[in-house]
Amino acid sequence: MGLDWSTPNHGPIQKFKGVLGCNGNVKMVVKAGMDNSDNGTGPLPRCIVLDIEGTTTPITFVADVLFPYARDNVGRHFSATYKTAETQNDIKLLRAQVEDDLKQGVDGAVPIPTDDAGKEEVIAALVANVEAMIKADRKITALKQLQGHIWRTGFENNELEGVVYDDVPEALEKWHALGIKVYIYSSGSRLAQRLIFGKTNYGDLRKYLSGFFDTTVGNKKETHSYIEIAESLGVDKPSDILFLTDVFQEAVAAKAAGLEVMISIRPGNVPLPDDHSFKTITSFTEI
């Protein structure tokens, strides 16, 4: 299903809970699903599903840090891990993807020789295909799984650190205190998602996250993907879920599935159509 239940249980949802304010006083806050109409904001969502790139994290981090790191280290990664079961599975997925790409006439796809041709020749073909996939920013499982494995090495070696917007950690902590379950849905692999949020410029944020979805649940621009997510989360109705993204087509697909949707307006994000009808935010503090 593309869902990763990797974080501890956050405990039972209570109707009200005291939250320690900045001045040390205890504040009473409305819990998820309760009517917050006194504040003019309506009922709070039971679940929030977050995109990463352009929503929690600057596009520049993904485009200028993560992608180049994977591209520059793919050959080294294959050479160092070639015989491991994990890398052999990555190669199997890439072979299948490239075979399909060749049939479809996808630009940049080159045949991957059999193992009989020798390790170096196989790796050279793999690198050529992966570089073309990264350049085209393809949202395919074979590439995303491999990138996650390469990034894992970067995070373990302290060569990479995840980046989130300044307003994100406080919002995650607030939603957690309100009993709202927060999930990530990204085209990046679940491993990559855990890496990004596990070691950020604000520390480990995974304690505020209840699960991770990736493209194995479906393409982010297809309505069926959001129907699957809603069914997986077990909400009474899809509108109990608030989905935040910076991509107009993803917003359209999620809305068609019945989810509440807001679009994130951040520096560097692609401009929205003039006639769009979605609520927009420039910071999580507006939610």
Rank of each mutant, 00 (worst) to 15 (best):
M28Y: 11
G179Y: 07
E131G: 05
D167W: 08
S79A: 14
M262P: 00
V65G: 01
F213D: 02
D38N: 01
R190G: 15
Q104K: 15
V74G: 06
D115Q: 15
G2Y: 03
H149P: 04
T87A: 14
G198Q: 11
K15M: 11
N25S: 11
T141V: 15
L205I: 12
A251P: 00
F213C: 06
V163Y: 15
S187D: 13
D275A: 02
W5L: 12
G268S: 03
A171H: 10
V110E: 12
D72P: 03
G234K: 08
Y183P: 03
F61A: 02
Y82L: 14
D274I: 03
T245N: 05
N9M: 04
L50W: 13
F243L: 05
H224G: 00
N36L: 03
P273M: 05
K181L: 09
D107M: 13
G54C: 09
G18Y: 10
K103H: 05
F197M: 14
M34G: 00
V247D: 07
Q147C: 14
V235E: 06
D4V: 15
I123G: 10
D51A: 02
E159T: 08
F61D: 05
N89H: 15
F243Q: 01
Y183V: 02
F78N: 08
A257P: 01
L172A: 11
D167I: 12
E161Q: 15
M262I: 00
E228V: 11
L102M: 14
E222R: 12
F284T: 10
F16E: 09
V122F: 14
E156K: 15
T285N: 12
N219S: 15
T141F: 08
V110Q: 11
E286H: 12
F248W: 12
T84A: 13
S79F: 12
A257S: 04
P113T: 09
I123P: 08
I196S: 06
G218Y: 03
T223H: 01
G2I: 05
T282F: 02
Y185R: 03
V98A: 08
D204R: 04
K92Y: 11
W175G: 00
D275E: 04
H176V: 00
R266H: 02
W175E: 01
G148A: 13
E228F: 03
V247F: 06
G203M: 09
L102Q: 13
N73F: 09
T56W: 02
G268M: 00
S79I: 11
G18V: 07
K17R: 14
I140Y: 07
L3W: 10
E131M: 02
P12F: 11
T216Q: 14
T41V: 13
I13R: 15
S277Q: 02
G21S: 11
Y185A: 04
A230H: 01
K237H: 10
E228C: 09
I184D: 00
K103I: 07
I196G: 01
I48A: 04
T41N: 04
I112Q: 13
K174F: 09
D240I: 04
I150D: 10
P238E: 05
N219F: 07
R190Y: 00
G33T: 02
T245D: 04
E231I: 04
E99M: 09
S232I: 01
A96C: 05
S264Q: 01
Q104Y: 05
G33A: 03
S264A: 15
D90H: 15
K27I: 02
N129W: 09
E222Y: 06
A171W: 10
Y226G: 02
A177K: 09
I150W: 09
